[in-house]
């Protein structure tokens, strides 16, 4: 295991940022720390980097106890949400910074900077100032700067949070490919579950300063440990006594299936290739269901029609015992 975090607690005044956090992050993988804003995930990342000190507990990186090590000795690369570019230095100088601090020979620095700028597709911008770059380019430069010192781990704090949706999606895919090329242990913080599911090998879900669940994207999606994880990773609706995903509900026009509940279609919306419908059950609840356009057409669905709803076989469900409010707000 590359990063071991044991019994970490952290408070800011009376605000508990992290409570008894224990987690191991595997070597060579891309791990996402996922959770709502203010849940403690950035604090955990900053504790790993040494930019923040834990009140109690230990952090070890590649088998070395780093709890009391200053950030400059940890050999981690850190990428900040707002890039933290050195405004007065050219792009090449930014990337060279860590190497110059380490007093590497000039030739080596130049060669390494060239290589990294090629890697992040910024070779032609080497002599520009960061203010002349777009947000996405700045973040790629920051990434090259962090990678230049060949860190043992690469930490990214909401790396795409300040970018617009299209650039974010591009950079996300690019990060995944980059990680396959340069397989350094990488941990990134995000509050966007789609981003985590798409990019990460492993996801750590953090909420209210506690770890809710750790696992691969598939296992989290299919076997959420609790209401919160289920709600945070995707849409959730309630059918009878269970909570499940809207696309895990089967619709039929007759009550043939065992355990099906009758409902009336209240609203029907087509979004691209899928159809979302809201149906009112006899107990007065509204259930969301997602189905394909073709299926909806074959069933002849329309507002006011009566349907029968059943959880599809193999659907991820959790009992709807706990109050819905928290998970639904978070999702």
């Amino acid at each position: 295991m590359s990063i071991e975090i044991s019994d970490v607690n952290k408070r800011f005044g009376d605000f508990v940022a992290l409570e008894d956090v224990n987690v191991s992050l595997p070597t060579g993988q891309l791990t996402a720390l996922l959770g709502p804003s203010g849940g403690g995930k950035s604090t955990l990342l900053r504790i790993i980097a040494g930019l923040e000190k834990a009140d109690t507990g230990t952090v070890s990186i590649e088998g070395v106890d780093a709890t009391r090590m200053s950030p400059q000795k940890r050999n981690v690369g850190f990428v900040f949400q707002h890039y933290a570019v050195f405004k007065h230095m050219s792009v090449a100088k930014n990337v060279a910074f860590g190497l110059e601090i380490r007093k590497r020979p000039k030739d080596e620095v130049r060669a390494r900077v060239d290589e990294l700028l090629r890697l992040v597709h910024l070779s032609q911008f080497a002599d520009r100032l960061p203010s002349q770059l777009s947000g996405g380019q700045r973040q790629r430069m920051a990434l090259a700067r962090a990678l230049a010192v060949q860190p043992k781990v690469l930490l990214l704090d909401e790396p795409f949070g300040a970018l617009d949706a299209k650039v974010r999606k591009e950079l996300r895919e690019w990060l995944r490919r980059l990680h396959d090329e340069v397989p350094v242990t990488t941990v990134f913080v995000t509050h966007d579950q789609e981003e985590a599911m798409e990019v990460a090998d492993e996801i750590v879900v953090i909420n209210d300063g506690r770890i809710e669940q750790v696992g691969t994207p598939d296992s989290l999606y299919d076997r959420p440990a609790n209401d919160f994880v289920m709600g945070f990773l995707g849409e959730v609706t309630r059918l009878g006594d269970v909570r499940l995903r809207p696309h895990d509900i089967e619709i039929s026009r007759s009550p043939d299936l065992a355990g099906s509940s009758p409902a009336d279609v209240l609203r029907l919306t087509r979004v691209g290739f899928e159809v979302r419908l809201v149906a009112g059950t006899e107990d007065g609840r509204e259930v969301s269901v997602v189905t394909t356009r073709a299926h909806a057409r074959s069933l002849g669905l329309a507002e006011g029609e009566r349907v029968w709803l059943t959880p599809s076989s193999g659907a991820a469900t959790v009992p709807a015992m706990t109050p819905l409010v928290r998970a639904e707000l978070a999702g």
């Binding site: 800011f12 005044g13 009376d14 605000f15 940022a17 709502p36 804003s37 203010g38 950035s42 949400q81 909401e158 949070g161 509050h191």
Partner: peptide
């Protein structure tokens, strides 16, 4: 620090 990082962190969140 307490005042800055207290409850506000949860509300503001991303702008650390």
């Amino acid at each position: 620090t307490a005042a800055v990082l207290g409850q506000d962190t949860r509300a503001v969140g991303r702008g650390r």
